[in-house]
Amino acid sequence: MTETQQIRVRASISGTVQGVGFRYFTVTEAKRLGMTGWVRNRMDGTVETEAQGTGPDVGRFVARLHVGPRWSMVEHVAVDHIPVVSGERSFTVRRDRE
């Protein structure tokens, strides 16, 4: 894998991660790193995100997910590599819940 090769991950973050600005923290971090994807709250109390960017940027992003915003308390971050999505242009908050 090269430094500029795009990769995509799906992450599920558990702990105190809803009602503390975690989705907006995620958007800010993703945009700062020039990544695409989305983030949403899930019905089970976790936050789920898919993020795409270069390997180093995805690594930085995942590291920030372990920290979270000020009022959060991250207990666990599960990360899976998934196929890259072509044509995606932004990082958004999804309003749907699963």
Rank of each mutant, 00 (worst) to 15 (best):
V47L: 09
I7M: 11
E48P: 00
T26N: 05
P69S: 11
F25A: 02
L65A: 04
E75M: 11
V79I: 14
T4Y: 04
R94Q: 11
T16S: 09
H81L: 11
G37A: 05
V27G: 04
L33T: 06
A11M: 05
G15P: 01
V93H: 03
S72A: 15
T54M: 02
D57I: 00
R97I: 10
G19K: 06
G37T: 03
A51S: 13
R42D: 15
G21M: 07
V58E: 01
S12T: 15
D80W: 01
R94C: 06
V77R: 01
E75V: 01
I13R: 04
E50V: 09
E98L: 13
R8D: 04
S90Y: 02
W71T: 03
I82W: 11
D80G: 00
R60P: 00
R8F: 03
P69V: 10
F91C: 08
S12Q: 14
M35Q: 11
E88R: 13
V39G: 08
N41A: 10
V17Y: 06
R64V: 00
M73P: 00
G15I: 03
G45T: 08
R8Q: 15
D96F: 03
V62M: 01
M43A: 14
E48Q: 15
V58T: 08
V39Q: 07
T92N: 08
